[in-house]
Design a binder for these strands. Structure first.
Lengths: 303, 303
DNA sequence: CGACGGCGATACCCTGGAGGCATCGCCGTA
DNA sequence: TACGGCGATGCCTCCAGGGTATCGCCGTCG
């Protein structure tokens, strides 16, 4: 009658690996159990999900459909469990996520006027799981940067800010006042894997380097493994002795948005969204010209 | 580890009735089973959900949170199952829902140019479950009318149309060219229950009459049980010998929107949305002045 | 060409959970 | 004080989910 979320989780494991034995290892169960559970799921849904033949395991149409749907459903279930256990503790809590360079302070302060009883936690988030954290309830509201997979989310734009190139200190453009995108044509670019999309797990072209978060980006750029780009406010917040920032005049600006899970409806969340929109200009100030020049002066003395 | 959707469904039944015995009847299981299952769920979540004392059963904070979250989660699970079984049949299908008075023909035709292989089914929907049908996958896209609970949905406005009063043929204003809202002050108004919000199941003030859908509305108005309002295009499509439509000049217009489940992402759905937006003007024509005058002339001869 | 190894399926067993029925304990009320 | 309503408990059965051992198929390699 009802879907069995455990079987669904098992199916996702098999579909990801396309291999019963290894999936069973991942799940810490024996392979025959997994084999039977998948068959039971197929019977339950009345549709074959996998094709097993001598060439290995492949997905059917129904299997592909289930794979795309199962992740969000499991995330929702996780979010429900998380919210219930939080509600059981009695204290009203709101977890706000923010990408590097964004300060939620103004919105939190504004929100606290209306809800002095609600405890607001803030947590930094990264591009590769910003959507997942919203969907599975680890954060209630997120200051996110595009691009983001909007599936299951409600995303509203807040403001934009220019982007800067991240160059090693010895780079030929490192001292420039500004450059254009075409100046950097052919430069090796660090690849930021985005696991928020389908977890197809193909190796990314960084020759094995995992680039996640700003600090790591700066390290890799400093090490000469490639260049990267950052929103200007992020560049204001992070400096590195071996790294220089140079504005790129013709690069599409970075879009900062507010995001919540679409299924999430609560007056507390709505009031925070209102507060965040009301204080958007203050939030945007972190990356304005003044802050940029100030930080740039500091950075210039740094090296 | 994973949430058990069956226990969740059981919990919703108990929370709705606030009575174990009756909830067990609803679920067609014995009361002791239900009692144990709820305890198991509480243990599983690590939080008490219900307070049982001599005064009956009440929800805790955690229980309230779970009740609000459980419905959408169960609907999502249902949607997943439905989509998988449809995908298993191989044929690409798209179910389009539309409220009374709206014709999806133009969008369907436009969509068919791009996707001749996709079978487009259309189905009329009502206000009281338009959101639920989107959330549990019975329809993929909906031409809906506001108000609608946007939780878990992606709703984009299409067009607006004026609204008309629905009056019995013998009403003192039945022959008027137009009236204002204040003219109808004090008139008994039919109440349309909206089960899409919390199913609190309190009796609605219609003295026992269930008013659902346009045809029933017309019957009740004709019987003199009250007056009602309809979007003009709906009035164009439906006529009744004992009922007259009169434009209300100062009533807020009816907003027609497109809606999809927020978790639903598929190129087919997106293409239909694009087609629907592209043909919005054609769709809106059903309620324009010309159609209205034509229908009104017919209706005048009708009586 | 036969032996072997990888991999999913099957056989069989054990335990725990979900269902049923009968009954208890509590409490409000007649 | 007796009774009735209601949720909890005790006890049984049965099946689903977990394990181990093994089979059957097939590709590969000596």
């Amino acid at each position: 009658m009802d879907l069995d979320l455990r079987k669904l989780r098992y199916f996702v494991a098999v579909a990801d690996r396309l291999h019963f034995g290894r999936a069973a290892d991942d799940l810490h169960i024996a392979q025959p159990v997994l084999s039977r559970q998948i068959r039971a799921l197929e019977q339950d849904l009345g549709a074959p999900l996998l094709i097993r033949d001598s060439h290995g395991v492949a997905l059917t149409d129904a299997g592909r459909q289930l794979l795309t749907d199962a992740g969000p459903l499991l995330a929702s279930a996780e979010a429900v469990r998380r919210r219930v256990t939080v509600a059981a503790r009695g204290s009203q809590r709101l977890m706000v996520g923010f990408r590097a360079g964004i300060t939620a302070t103004a919105a939190v302060r504004e929100f606290a006027i209306r809800h002095p009883d609600v405890i607001v936690d803030v947590q930094r988030i990264e591009s590769d799981d910003q959507a997942a954290m919203l969907l599975d309830g680890r954060i209630d509201v997120g200051y996110v940067r595009l691009p983001i997979d909007e599936t299951g989310l409600r995303v509203t734009p807040l403001y934009t800010e220019p982007r800067v190139a991240v160059l090693p200190a010895g780079h030929r453009f490192a001292g420039r006042e500004q450059i254009t995108e075409s100046d950097l044509a052919g430069e090796p670019l660090l690849w930021h894997p985005d696991t928020s999309t389908q977890p197809t797990k193909r190796p990314h072209p960084n020759a094995g380097y995992l680039v996640r978060g700003v600090d790591e980006t700066l390290e890799h750029v400093a090490a000469g493994r490639g260049i990267s780009f950052l929103a200007r406010s992020t560049a204001v917040f992070y400096s590195h002795p071996e790294v220089r920032y140079v504005p790129v005049t013709d690069l599409a600006p970075d879009q900062v948005c507010l995001a919540v899970a679409a299924s999430r409806t609560s007056p507390v969340v709505n009031d925070f969204l209102a507060a965040a929109h009301a204080t958007a200009e203050i939030t945007a100030e972190c990356g304005n010209d003044e802050m940029w020049q100030l930080a740039n002066g500091v950075a210039a003395q740094h090296g």
